[in-house]
């Protein structure tokens, strides 16, 4: 469970972008998923993030997010109609219920719940994508320039976690060989057996902390200003993708200012497409956000393009 990183190198373009570019792309997707409330815009963001997951070749990991997301989306679709009754299109009125009183289920609340369900799935998909395409080292190296102590702590812990998980499994096996049965006894007895495991691990790990400190001091930690080596290069693909992100962000702000990104759910559902410009803007935003995915296709199937970006 904790012996392998969630990230796996698949050699796709999204994994080979500069950390600033890929984090910018993900941040724009995330911000737009939170800013827009129009169902078509939310569906568009979900579609782009889903396509990005497909191009990043992490469908099996996405399945786990979707399973969790569908349950939460269902909960959102249940809670919203239960707590909002001021919609104009009443579908069903319940008899008087204890605590809740008269519950009116309205179409507007169901539609709002469904749109928020799409928002949730979009956000989960964006985070799945982030976990699948951004290597922890790349992420931490970006922060190490201006928050090196925090980045160092997280980096050390990331390195130690698989080893600690292995130590835990070994200690458990060792105690089992000595006759400790973790399944036997009541909850208190079982907790006590687990406490031996934690004790073992804690004591050995704390001694390890001193060794880490000595190793850091041997490498001159804290003796003077830090030097910084940057391995990542900015390539044409970064410029293209970053420009596309900025383009999408500017047009999204324009769509928000014009009110195209918002939708009136209450008290009555508004018109889905109030102006053709709303669809044109959506097309431009989605087109810009799809550029890295198109480049990814070229990266895979067009060696000439790959050599140039």
């Amino acid at each position: 469970m904790l012996d392998r990183l969630f990230y796996e190198d698949k050699g796709v373009l999204l994994q080979n972008l500069h950390s600033v570019t890929i984090l910018g792309y993900l941040a724009v997707l995330f911000a737009l998923a939170l800013l827009f409330s129009h169902p078509l815009y939310l569906a568009g963001i979900f579609l782009i993030s889903a396509l990005a997951v497909v191009t990043a070749e992490v469908l099996e990991k996405w399945e786990f997010y979707l399973k969790a997301g569908l349950w939460m989306a269902l909960l959102i679709m249940v809670i919203n109609p239960l707590v909002f009754h001021a919609g104009k299109t009443i579908l069903w009125r319940s008899p008087t219920l204890p605590l809740l009183g008269n519950v009116s289920i309205c179409l507007e609340a169901i539609c709002y719940g469904a749109a928020m369900g799409i928002r949730l799935l979009a956000v989960l998909t964006i985070f799945c994508l982030a976990a699948a395409v951004v290597h922890p080292d790349k992420f931490l190296s970006l922060f190490s320039r201006f928050a090196y102590k925090s980045a160092l702590v997280v980096s050390l812990a990331t390195r130690m976690l698989p080893a600690a998980a292995r130590d835990l499994a070994n200690a458990r096996e060792m105690l089992q060989l000595r006759g400790v049965d973790y399944g036997a006894g009541n909850l208190k007895e079982r907790l006590k057996k687990y406490s031996w495991l934690l004790d073992l691990l804690l004591l050995s790990s704390l001694e390890g902390a001193l060794q880490i400190a000595e190793a850091m001091q041997a490498r001159a930690f804290g003796t003077g200003p830090r030097s910084c080596y940057r391995r990542e290069l900015r390539r044409p693909r970064d410029l293209l993708c970053f420009t596309a992100c900025c383009f999408a962000l500017v047009f999204s702000c324009y769509a928000k200012a014009k009110g195209y990104g918002d939708y009136n759910y209450y008290p009555q559902l508004g018109v889905l497409v109030p102006h053709p410009a709303s669809l044109i803007l959506l097309g431009i935003i989605l087109g810009s956000l799809a550029l890295p995915l198109v480049l990814n296709w070229g990266w895979k199937h067009w060696p000439y393009l790959r050599s140039k970006i």
Partner: peptide
């Protein structure tokens, strides 16, 4: 923050994370 404190925080963070497994 000294190197010992950094090592200690990293170890305790790891312990807190790995304790989720059993």
């Amino acid at each position: 923050v000294s190197s010992r404190e950094i090592g200690l925080i990293a170890v305790l963070g790891t312990m807190a994370a790995v304790a989720r497994v059993p």
